[in-house]
Design a protein around this nucleic acid. Structure first.
Lengths: 166, 166
DNA sequence: CTGATTGCAAATGCTTTGCACGCCA
DNA sequence: TGGCGTGCAAAGCATTTGCAATCAG
């Protein structure tokens, strides 16, 4: 984890008159130990594995805090719970492609897209704040080869596929 | 409401071996009586106003059916419930701009955007299925004139603003 | 007839909250 | 010391589901 992230959170906490706590430290550390997306529940599990005893309530409250501090973003993958993305610090304008077959999420950036979004927004009489392109797409590999390693993994893990609950 | 819509639903129902019911008729009619977005709860209220006695459970079940039949789409406005959009029949590729000030949703289409999305998707090794650009933007009118009629309306109606529950 | 559909109420699953206690500044 | 933060359990909400009764084909 980048020390810069801790610094940003500290700045935010100071500005708001909030307090540093061990739970917030642990949560921050666990989140930014990887660049993977996570649900509140997954984060809770990671914390337990890491020895942290932070409660679910604290996890939820801290996620809200981190979103306000702009350190993470919530994204909707369509499975009934909010997924959080820690990669907006390094890639502030990235978008998501979601595989309809296996649920794999691919992040990508494109400056032409950003420019176009900006133009469209202004043309409609608004000032751009944030934009997110969400592409749902089918895996060419699955189609051509009849199987896709991601899908097999997803099934093994009992992962919830897009637009599907349970 | 376009008679074509009823026809499409009938075709879908026949193909799946399902049945036509008065509840499904009423729901379809009420949805396509306008081009407004709606939540399941709003739809339920509209139905009651229209004299229909369809239950909430049936509303939810029928919404699922209509999404499968591709007559409506579910969209996420970030307020904790699914909003449904009946305008994808006339505008299959439209996108949404959501005003961060008042929650107003503006629909727009752009062929350059569609083309770009298509290219991006293929470049990543996927086959396009569906794409949705969601732009969050601030109202220029509110900024310049200090107020915005939509915002006032939203407040009067107690409408839930984006990214805010309750 | 027979299986699809409905309404009701109960259940679910994610998320939020009230409250008493603990701890940072 | 004054509050903010935490954990726990109890709500809250949107949505789903089990079941018996009803209805369409």
């Amino acid at each position: 984890m980048d020390g810069d992230i801790r610094e940003r959170l500290d700045a935010f906490i100071r500005k708001k008159g909030l307090r540093q706590t061990s739970q917030r430290d642990e949560i921050l550390k666990v989140i930014f130990a990887s660049d993977e997306h996570f649900t509140p529940d997954e984060l809770f599990e990671r914390l337990r594995s890491a020895g942290s005893k932070a409660s679910r309530a604290t996890v939820y409250r801290t996620l809200t805090l981190l979103v306000e501090a702009n350190l993470i973003h919530g994204i909707e993958l369509g499975d009934g719970q909010t997924t959080y993305d820690p990669n907006f610090i390094d890639h502030p304008n990235h978008n998501h492609l979601i595989c309809v077959d296996c649920g794999k999420v691919v992040e990508f950036e494109d400056s032409h897209l950003d420019l176009l979004n900006d133009c469209l927004t202004r043309r409609l009489g608004y000032r751009p704040v944030r934009q997110s392109l969400r592409i749902e797409a089918a895996c060419e590999r699955l189609r051509n080869e009849g199987s896709c390693p991601e899908l097999i993994q997803a099934r093994i893990k009992g992962k919830r596929l897009p637009n599907r609950k349970k």
